[in-house]
Design a protein around this nucleic acid. Structure first.
Lengths: 140, 140
DNA sequence: TGAAACAATGCAATACCATTGCATCGCCCT
DNA sequence: AGGGCGATGCAATGGTATTGCATTGTTTCA
């Protein structure tokens, strides 16, 4: 009852703990996708490994999704409410800004379905566009 | 005169050396995209750092392109002949097989042009599909 | 030809991210 | 209260990418 965020965790079969509520809060507050180091820094001085495992749990349970944007570090962002652990690939495009190095989800831009020749069995499609985000494009 | 591979390097403004010819040869022989460790292993006992810098040079000169397939290590594959250092994003789809962990270029599958809302300025689009490659799909 | 100038190479060392082992802590249930 | 289980946190490890620096090799020019 206390926090509505507890319900968010419970709905995803994740036992609510203080740490997990903190990490969830950080993800909800921040618009861009966050790396492990980002979350650690925003939290103050939380243990890196615990944050790592928290994000892994969130990923496994379908609460967040991983984004490999080529920056070297994996980033995490909240899934759409309908995501499940089995199908938690968010089918939207991600954008990595080469100037501010922020990665953002573009929920309104869907990943197109691309037919492949032959016997390929596609499980997941990742589409990352790189360039200048709206803010940096205007500023430059 | 000697190797036609020398001409390939020279055409890309790369000084031919023994090491670079070896690395180029490995890339040409191998159909799949190769990581730094892959090249190192295929070469026998070449120095890892030299291979790393060789691949960096190749990338800068537009001879190969980097593929971030989420396997943890960046992979490299030869560009199409027309690639330039400024525009060496190969506009084809890459496929990462979750079974054999090989990444391959799909030159016949083009990356679609996706219009973005707002002021985004796209410099590059990376599209990686994951699943079972043709060989592994048949085998399973 | 010989020496300077430059590029490439290779060893050592470092930085960073991700991950595992293990002991401890805390909570829930009986 | 005590057992059991999950979560936490410290320590340690592995892998990849990268830089510094000295050496080697090659080209260029007097």
């Amino acid at each position: 009852m206390a926090h509505p965020q507890e319900d968010t965790l419970i709905a995803k079969q994740i036992t609510p703990t203080a740490m997990r509520l903190l990490v969830l809060d950080v993800l909800q507050q921040h618009p861009a996708a966050l790396s492990l180091a980002d979350v650690e820094q925003l939290l103050g001085h939380a243990d890196r490994i615990t944050v790592h495992r928290t994000l892994k749990t969130f990923t496994d349970k379908g609460l967040v999704h991983r984004i490999e944007d080529g920056s070297g570090a994996v980033k995490f962002a909240l899934c759409e409410p309908g995501c499940t652990p089995e199908q938690h690939q968010d089918l939207h495009v991600h954008f990595f800004c080469t100037r501010c190095r922020e990665t953002s989800c573009l929920p309104t831009v869907a990943v197109p379905t691309i037919p492949l020749p032959g016997a390929f069995q596609v499980q997941e499609t990742s589409l990352v566009m790189k360039g200048l985000c709206e803010r940096c494009a205007v500023a430059s």
